[in-house]
């Protein structure tokens, strides 16, 4: 297990500060521009996930696999790094929610669900080998965006069905998240998934 923790320590020594800095700066910037919780859930979290995947050591650098770490611990270490970054995101989110005197309400729950879905969605490619960093980053953003919408919709539908039209209208009219972007995200997701599977099937890793 010490090998896995070496990977975690390495991940954070490489990009921990960068991720944390981007998270804080982006959140504060978005808040100061008047972004609400919906924005944070729909855009901020997926983008953070993508940034995190991009900054964690580029998986296309095959040299990493030549380090004296067993592959299973390399993957296990990466899971732990991801989990820790998500935990940090959650703490930051709740902290900011209270700071701005807002209740995290159901969107915090949605965030936790998204984090779980994200971790699960990333485990599959990680299990078979780390795909290209761009593919991994884009896939993560796309999966998380789609998962956010789906979960947000499910939660709103369960808690307050009357809010569904306004929730959908909010997404539809959202300046940073128009329908075209949704389609683009899906296309990117499918494209990057194809690339990832292509790389895996070639047994490059």
């Amino acid at each position: 297990m010490s090998e896995a923790f070496a990977v975690v320590r390495k991940d954070f020594s490489i990009c921990g500060k960068t991720i944390l800095m981007i998270m804080v700066v982006l959140t504060l910037a978005m808040r100061s521009m008047g972004a609400d919780d919906l924005f944070l859930v729909l855009l901020f979290i997926p983008v953070m996930s993508g940034i995190m995947c991009f900054f964690l050591d580029p998986p296309d650098s095959l040299a990493v696999f030549a380090l004296p770490v067993r592959r299973k611990f390399l993957v296990a270490g990466r899971y732990i790094s991801i989990a820790l970054v998500f935990f940090a995101s959650l703490v930051l989110y709740v902290f900011l929610a209270f700071w701005f005197r807002r209740s995290p309400d159901y969107r915090a729950l949605s965030f936790i669900c998204v984090a779980i879905v994200f971790c699960l969605s990333i485990m599959v490619p990680l299990y078979f080998g780390l795909p290209h960093k761009w593919a991994l980053g884009i896939t993560t953003v796309a999966i998380t965006m789609i998962a956010c919408i789906a979960l947000g919709f499910a939660i709103v539908l369960t808690k307050d069905p009357g809010q569904v039209p306004s929730f959908l209208a909010g997404i539809w009219n959202f300046p940073f998240f128009p329908p075209v972007s949704c389609l683009l995200a899906i296309a990117l997701y499918l494209g990057s998934l194809t690339v990832s599977l292509g790389i895996i099937s070639r047994k490059v890793l």
Binding site: R9, I14, S61, L67, P68, V69
Partner: peptide, 29 residues
């Protein structure tokens, strides 16, 4: 792998790090 030192022409890693930090990261392994 602990007995092997390697240099790969094109597949270098952690180029965003300074040599000092690269050494610290590698010392973990």
């Amino acid at each position: 792998k602990n007995q092997i030192g390697f240099v790969l022409g094109e597949n270098r890693f952690w180029e965003t790090l300074a040599p000092k930090d690269l050494g610290s990261a590698l010392s973990l392994f």
